[in-house]
Design a binder for these strands. Structure first.
Lengths: 322, 322
DNA sequence: CGCGTTTACGTCGTTCGTAACGATA
DNA sequence: TATCGTTACGAACGACGTAAACGCG
C-alpha cells in the first residue's frame, strides 16, 4: 500500500468516479491511475469502487468504510509537508479568502494591506459570496479560510474561531431630525421613519424585526439591499434611516451622514473565521488570522487543530482602522 | 514523501534512534533506512533527527512537531489494512490479552474458550501482570487489549470501556460462626476475625480500610496476598475471613467454604477493557469484547473509535458462568 | 463513433541489498 | 577494536507513460 495509491483513490472519488478527470487532478495519466487503483484493491483483497462493466459508478460498502481513514491519512501527509514548509519559514503561495461582502469590502482591506507588507510574495485571492457558498468552497478546499459575519451553520468538520463582536449602527443624513437628538435612540424613534437595511431583515426571524416586535411595532422597510454601500446611497437619497453594521461606517461617510449608536437596541453580533478542522494552515493563513483576530496570538491554531474546542479567549469588539 | 519513509522515521524514533535496531523492526537493512531517512529529510527540507557527528541522539524541534502527524498517518494506514482484513472476514492471528491475575484466572477462561470455538484459527496469548505493566504493554503495542479490575490511570490515548460491575465477597470455612449467621453481615461481624485479602488492602486508601474506618475500626490483616487462590488456601487453613472479588468464588469452593454477601459493605467496583484509541482493532478483538462485554454489541467499537466518549450504555453486573 | 476503462508493453526511476568505508567510544 | 552510521554500487522491482484494444451509449 502506497501513499500515492491512497491519493489516487481519493482523487477518483472526488472526481465523481471519473478516472480520466482524476488523472489530471494528480497530474498523471489515466491508465496509470486505473492500474494503481486495481493494485490497491488487490492489495487490500477487496474492491473499493462499484464497476458497471467498464465504468465506475460509486463506492462499495467497503470503500465507504475505508474512505474516511484514507482521507485522514493523506490529510496528515499534507500536514507534514505544510509544517515542514512553515518550519522553513516559507511565505509563498496564494491566500484564498472566502468572505461575505461586508467583510471583503470593509474589514479585510486593512488586513490584506498589512499582510502584503509582511509577506510580499503572498498573493491574495479574495472571493466574496453568500455564507453557504463560501462554506461550500471551504469544504471543497477551494479557499483557505472563510470570514463570515455570523456563525451560520458550519458543517461538523469546520473549525470556528470568533474574530470580533460588532453592533448595528443607524445612519441618517446630517440634517435629519434624529441626527440632532440629544438622548439615546429608542426603537420608537426609529419607527417614525422608513428603514433602509439588509435583505436579511425581511427574514421573519431577523433581529431587526425582533427588536421592533418587543415594542409591538412592525418596521417599515423602505428598501432592503445586499450591501452596505447601497444602503448608504439610499440613505443619502433620503429614503429613510439606514441600519447597518458598524464596520460599514467609514470616516468619509460623515461628510453627508450622521451615525447613530444602536448598541443597546440590537443584539451583539460576532464575526467568525472558519477553517477546515484537522488541517494545518499555511503560515500566511496563520499570519492573516493574527491580523484579523490578534487575540489568538498565543493559541495553538498553528499546530494540530486536534482539539476542536473554541479557545476560552476574550473576543474583542470591532475597532475601526485608525 | 512515501508512506514507507514515514514508517522508517517512526521505527527509528521508536528504537531510540538506533538505525540498526530499527532496521530489523521493519525487516530491512540498515543502510536502506539511513538513506530513506535522509531522503525524507531533504524532501522536507529540514532535519528531523539530531546528529552528533555520526550517531543519532534525538529529535530536532521540527521532528518533535512532525512526529504526532507521522504517527496518525501510519496508524491510519494500519487501520485501512485492518478494516480490509475485517471486511474479508479474516479471523487469523494472535489475540494478545493483558490482564490482571483475577481476570486471567477467573474471568477470561470462559471467554477464551468461547472465542476458540468461534474462531479456531485464533491463538490466544494471555499475559498476566500488574495494571501498570499491562498498560505499558498496551501502549507499546505488545498486546491488543487490556482487561483490568479497576479503572486505574489509563493514559490519555487509551480507550476505556467499562465491562461489568462486581462486588467483594467474604469467604469463611463452612464450620465458621459467620457461615451460620442468619442476618446480613456487618462490619462489626468481620472485625471479630482476622482478615485475609489482597495486598492492596494494606494501602492506606483501600476501600477495605475505608469501610472499617466508617465504624472506627482498624482491620486485623492476618495475611494479604496477590491472588485469590492463595486467599482461599489461607481461609481454608483457618487464618481468618477471606475478602475477595466475587469472580474468584467458584462452585468447587463450596465444598469447604461458605461465601458471604458483602455487597452492602463495600463499594461497587468495575472491570474495564482498555484499547488504544484511534486504532481499529482486529476482528477477533471485537469478538472477544463482544463475549466479555456484550452490552457493546450495537456500538461502533468496530469502526473508527474516533469518538472517545464512553458510550452511554448500561454496564451489567458480574454474572458467574453457568 | 465518442467516451472511458482496461490491457499490453517498454522505459525510467527508485528502492533495497551487499560491500566497503568512516567515525566514535 | 567494536559499534553504528554513511557512501558506493549494482540488481530488481515497480511506477508511469505510450499505444492499442474493448464496451457501452
Amino acid at each position: 500500500m502506497t501513499l500515492q495509491q491512497i491519493r489516487i483513490f481519493l482523487a477518483i472519488v472526488d472526481s465523481g468516479f471519473n478516472i480520466t478527470q482524476a488523472a489530471d487532478r494528480v497530474h498523471a495519466t489515466q491508465p496509470g491511475l486505473s492500474k494503481q487503483l486495481k493494485q490497491l484493491e488487490d492489495h487490500l483483497g477487496l474492491s473499493l469502487v462499484q464497476r458497471k462493466s467498464k465504468s465506475l459508478t460509486g463506492l462499495t460498502p467497503a470503500g465507504e468504510v475505508l474512505l474516511p481513514h484514507a482521507r485522514t491519512m493523506v490529510r496528515e501527509a499534507g500536514n507534514i509537508l505544510e509544517l515542514a514548509r512553515n518550519w522553513r519559514g516559507s511565505t509563498h503561495g496564494a491566500l484564498r479568502i472566502g468572505a461575505t461582502h461586508a467583510q471583503a469590502r470593509y474589514v479585510l482591506p486593512e488586513m490584506v494591506q498589512k499582510l502584503r507588507t509582511q509577506m510580499p510574495e503572498v498573493s491574495i485571492d479574495l472571493r466574496p459570496g453568500e455564507p453557504d457558498e463560501i462554506l461550500e468552497l471551504l469544504r471543497k478546499n477551494d479557499i483557505d479560510l472563510a470570514v463570515l459575519s455570523h456563525s451560520s451553520d458550519a458543517w461538523p468538520d469546520s473549525y470556528v474561531l470568533p474574530a470580533y463582536h460588532w453592533r448595528m449602527r443607524g445612519l441618517v443624513p446630517i440634517e435629519h431630525p434624529l441626527a440632532s437628538l440629544q438622548r439615546a435612540v429608542k426603537v420608537s424613534d426609529l419607527a417614525q421613519y422608513p428603514i433602509v437595511t439588509y435583505n436579511s431583515a425581511r427574514n421573519p426571524g431577523s433581529s431587526l424585526r425582533a427588536t421592533f416586535a418587543l415594542e409591538g411595532i412592525v418596521p417599515d422597510l423602505a428598501c432592503t439591499t445586499r450591501d452596505a454601500d447601497s444602503i448608504k446611497a439610499y440613505v443619502k437619497a433620503g429614503l429613510g434611516v439606514g441600519v447597518l453594521s458598524e464596520m460599514a461606517v467609514e470616516v468619509s461617510d460623515y461628510d453627508h451622514l450622521h451615525a447613530l449608536d444602536l448598541g443597546s437596541l440590537f443584539p451583539r453580533y460576532t464575526s467568525f473565521v472558519i477553517l477546515r478542522r484537522g488541517e494545518v494552515p499555511p503560515k500566511f493563513v496563520r499570519s492573516f488570522i493574527a491580523l484579523l483576530a490578534p487575540h489568538y496570538h498565543a493559541h495553538p491554531i498553528a499546530l494540530g487543530l486536534d482539539r476542536p474546542e473554541v479557545f476560552a479567549v476574550q473576543v474583542p469588539d470591532w475597532r475601526p482602522a485608525p
